[in-house]
Amino acid sequence: MFNRGSQRGRRVIAISPNGPTGNGDEVEARFLAPHFESEGFPWLQIFGYIGSLLLTIAALLAVVQHILSPIGLLTVILILAVAQAALQLGIFMHLRESRGSTWHIITLGLGIVIALGLVGMSMWIMTFKSGVS
């Protein structure tokens, strides 16, 4: 149940079923109030689509035209890919939308940290060209 009430002049949204418990959920709710979009026309989606197309075309042209050294090119297209992932997350996956808590961002963040560690450390360990390779 969402109890909208006033507590010391500030608006509080309780996220527990029985209203504010006094155990911290009010604090969480105050800063992470439910946030949902309601636009009249899907401008955001159109912006996201055009943005992702532009980022893809930029990466493709950069590689086809060989505008930089190999290391520079790889850096640029990886940055473009990360930008496009952020765009998909923010616009299409409604990352900012939540019901009073943002545990999905924490879960996803942990997944990203482990994923980067997995890929990065695998590549790092294989740069030691010892007997096994």
Binding site: P42, Q45, I46, G48, Y49, S52, L53, T56, Q88, I91, F92
Partner: peptide, 8 residues
């Protein structure tokens, strides 16, 4: 990319 847009 287009299918992602239409899904949105």
């Amino acid at each position: 990319l287009t299918s992602s847009f239409t899904c949105g």
